[in-house]
């Protein structure tokens, strides 16, 4: 179960995330988006005989792994990491349709490993920024549909400037929030005891969950979710 993958995650998720859900993970830079998603996947894969695919556009495999290592998160055999480094060195951006390519990459891994059940994209912003901007809304819609057709529980990382004011998502990303089954927000807040990292589930269809911001810390055993912040 995904809710057992991170210590304390059951404080905010009372039911498990339904299989095949598409979850957005949002937050500013450095708020542990990559760390949270990768560590949920790695721990899930190590406990279950299944495969996962982590597609990184932000960093290449080596720097992603260095980053995870520093957070105390280890690599897992069944968790395949795919980056676009070679492809982007060998081809011009105009020769690559990255959204279609990402769908093909997923299909290729799915062909190879029929028990591929988890997928992550790090990040949607990067995917958009190097894609042809025409018909973006329908491309996004089709991409989400593709993930659902493949029955993958998917985490889509979306970097946001700290611009979410009183529950309003910045209008540029409303489509994704509307299409997703769940949204997990990561962030930092300044309190009396200094700056604290938080995790908050804003939406999770068909799942009982807490609404409060909970503190998330980096311990030597990886990520750890503590009590609510107030």
């Amino acid at each position: 179960m995904l809710k057992n993958t991170i210590s304390g995650l059951d404080k905010i998720l009372f039911d498990d995330i339904p299989k095949g859900s598409v979850i957005l993970v949002t937050g500013a830079e450095g708020t542990l988006k990559s760390g949270l998603v990768f560590s949920m996947m790695a721990n899930y894969i190590s406990a279950n005989d299944e495969h996962g695919l982590y597609v990184t556009l932000e960093q290449n495999i080596e720097s992603h792994l260095r980053n995870m290592n520093s957070l105390g998160i280890r690599e897992e055999r069944g968790l395949h990491i795919f980056d676009y480094r070679d492809m982007r060195l060998e081809w011009m951006d105009s020769e690559l349709d990255l959204i279609k390519t990402t769908e093909e990459v997923i299909d290729s891994y799915k062909e190879k490993y029929d028990n591929l059940t988890l997928f992550a994209l790090d990040s949607l912003n990067a995917l958009y920024s190097i894609s042809d901007q025409e018909n973006m809304r329908s491309k996004i819609y089709n991409f989400f549909s593709h993930l659902r057709d493949e029955e993958l529980t998917s985490f889509l990382i979306m970097e946001s400037a700290q611009s979410r004011i009183s529950g309003q998502f910045s209008s540029s990303h409303q489509v994704e929030h509307f299409l997703a089954d769940g949204t997990i927000e990561l962030g930092m807040i300044e309190g009396s005891g200094g700056v604290k990292r938080y995790i908050q589930i804003l939406k999770m269809r068909a799942t009982k969950h807490a609404m409060e911001k909970h503190q998330i810390i980096i311990s030597d055993k990886g990520l750890n979710i503590l009590g609510p912040i107030y």
Binding site: H80, K100, S108, Y109
Partner: peptide
């Protein structure tokens, strides 16, 4: 053969 179908095969065969 499109890029998205070739590179994953290269990586898994390498693995």
């Amino acid at each position: 053969l499109s890029q998205g179908t070739v590179y994953p095969v290269l990586y898994t065969l390498e693995g």
